[in-house]
Design a protein around this nucleic acid. Structure first.
Lengths: 147, 147
DNA sequence: ATACATGCAAATGCTTTGCTGGGCT
DNA sequence: AGCCCAGCAAAGCATTTGCATGTAT
């Protein structure tokens, strides 16, 4: 599934900065789009289904590039590798630091905070792939039982 | 600087779970307390000033333990190693995903969100060591200049 | 005696770097 | 020509695991 709009946008953005659109970059972006929350490793596998010779180094370099351009975002959910998604897949994760469980909530809940930070600090919070750490309902219950 | 209160509390908590209080654990907790935002590596160095034979493996295992007990928290600021602090050192980080810069803001700004999540999801958000990702003022300006 | 803790070395996982050659502009 | 880009191999850093030893209950 190739998103023509994004592809054009990317091509232009790259060109404006003296960079080039390449098949590899297209494939990485497509992979991130279709996978949602994929690690670099998983993205590499997907890309290699189409172009088996693409190296994981290229995946890393491209993800880094796309991230800086704002086309994809990465989030550190649990411990291991970060998780990449396209910018318009919007939601917030609640990560429990006790059991590691993850639940998603709508990112509209952060709208007030986004406004506050924009005014206060000139900081444009990216609420689309946030990982919020805390204690989930179940672990809270367990803690109380031990006390 | 040994915090006697925390030390006693830790001893009891550990004992309740069939674990033991050891010099190593005490030293790690003290190091995290005094350093604020230290990587496991830095914590290890501090601990080794007192007890040179303590292995970094023990640092990792102890940090993991203290984290699960809620006595310390770790945050993934930029890319590298996570940063550990004691639970009561409260503030929120704004991490710019473009340039990597980090600024701190008071965590009271998150109080409304904490309340929302508590009611909505039974999730106890730990606002004390949050890393919020977005674009900082300077990088926003640069983006606009390119367009 | 048993279960928990630590040290050490090796393994693992994830990511970056240096270098080379190929392709655009 | 000069710059951008991808592939490959190697290095790098952070963290985990296995195992033997030590220590408290």
């Amino acid at each position: 599934m190739v998103d023509v709009e994004t592809a054009r946008g990317l091509r232009k953005t790259l060109h404006d900065r003296g960079m080039r659109m390449t098949p590899q970059r297209q494939l990485v972006l497509d992979a991130v789009r279709s996978l949602e929350h994929a690690t670099p490793e998983q993205i590499c596998q997907r890309v290699q289904e189409t172009a088996p010779t693409v190296n994981i180094t290229t995946i890393y370099r491209t993800l880094d590039l796309l991230d800086r351009l704002g086309l994809v975002r990465h989030t550190h959910l649990g411990h291991g590798a970060p998780s990449y998604s396209v910018e318009d897949h919007r939601h917030v994760h609640l990560v429990c630091h006790v059991c590691g469980s993850i639940q998603e909530i709508p990112c509209e809940l952060l709208d007030p905070l986004v406004g506050t930070l924009r005014e206060r600090d000139g900081f444009e919070l990216d609420a689309s792939h946030l990982a919020l750490s805390g204690t989930c309902r179940d672990c809270l219950k367990q803690e109380q039982e031990i006390e």
